[in-house]
């Protein structure tokens, strides 16, 4: 994340002095209170049981993890939650790719626009966020439903004879996710584009590179930090998002966020929800470790 967001500091490692530690204290406290402590609580919960009313009982059990990986009927390896997880990754992955395809040119355009117009353009990207996220999601429901605005328009213009099913489909979920997370990709990429030194691009052209080659060899590497930051900012929250898949997907193809949320609310099975959450954290950590190791191997 650190290396992804800014230029890595390669001028030698300096240990922070007392002042450095003092300046970091608020951040460390924050991390402890809102990342480390909750994760530890989840870890403890994930090995506990629940009582009749759904309260956590501190009696050790492996059951919660067993339920994730093994079928409750047969005891064989179960794919129930694996399917849910893969589905979430596919949704989040598609969302990230679409956001990248749609968002990169927009960020480029804003970043290259005359300075006086950039503020206005950025504001336009932000304006939808002044309205509550839920209201915007309900607006999509009004647009996409069978009797909705889009179907009505298409039928009115005789483009289609019968309304077609848009809402409560996987496509609707991805649309909702892209709509919600697009600005989170545009902004970091914009940050990189704005910093990009135009003379480097000109130099590439002067040295005979075509547009494709200039993009590939100069523009893309220079905006990569923004792209990586944007991809992370979209992909990770999109995996855990539950409201959109519930509202726009109808709740029929549950995502991992939905299942976890359900455990804490509907099912009142906090230990199982915690076990799902911990598994997700571990999978992320492993994936991150694997990719970063892979990267350094490639670099060497």
């Amino acid at each position: 994340m650190q290396a992804a967001l800014g230029a890595p500091d390669t001028t030698g490692t300096r240990r922070p002095g007392v002042i450095g530690w003092l300046m970091m204290t608020p951040m460390l406290l924050w991390l402890f209170a809102f990342v480390i402590a909750p994760t530890l609580i989840l870890l403890v919960y994930s090995f506990c049981q629940r009582d009749d009313l759904g309260e956590v009982v501190y009696v050790f059990t492996w059951d919660n993890y067993r339920r994730i990986f093994f079928d409750s009927d047969t005891g064989a390896f179960g794919t129930t939650y694996l399917t849910v997880f893969v589905r979430s990754v596919v949704y989040a992955g598609l969302t990230t790719i679409i956001c990248l395809i749609v968002g990169y040119p927009v960020a480029w355009f804003i970043g290259r626009a005359p300075e006086s117009r950039r503020n206005l353009l950025l504001t336009l990207v932000m304006i939808p966020f002044w309205t509550s996220f839920l209201i915007r999601t309900y607006a999509w429901i009004t647009i996409l439903s069978t009797n909705g605005l889009l179907n009505g328009f298409l039928q009115y213009t005789k483009l289609i004879a019968e309304p077609f099913e848009m809402l409560y489909t996987p496509g609707a979920v991805v649309l909702g996710l892209v709509y919600s997370y697009l600005p989170f990709l545009i902004l970091p990429v914009y940050g990189s584009v704005e910093k990009l030194d135009n003379s480097l691009v000109e130099a590439a052209f002067d040295l005979g590179a075509g547009p494709m080659r200039a993009f590939q060899k100069v523009i893309l590497p220079l905006t990569q930090p923004g792209v990586i930051a944007g991809v992370l900012l979209v992909f990770i929250p999109a995996i855990g998002m539950f409201a959109i898949s519930q509202l726009m997907g109808g709740g029929t193809d549950p995502t991992i966020g939905e299942v976890i949320q359900n455990q804490f609310m509907q099912a009142r099975d906090w230990p199982f929800g915690a076990a799902l959450g911990m598994t997700l954290v571990v999978l992320f950590a492993v994936a991150f470790w694997f990719t970063s190791r892979h990267q350094s191997v490639v670099e060497n």
């Binding site: 759904g54 409750s72 399917t83 709740g251 549950p254 099912a267 099975d269």
Partner: peptide
């Protein structure tokens, strides 16, 4: 109540 939810959650998933 827990068993009930398990049945439905597992089937939906």
């Amino acid at each position: 109540a827990k068993d009930i939810d398990k049945v439905v959650t597992d089937l939906k998933g």
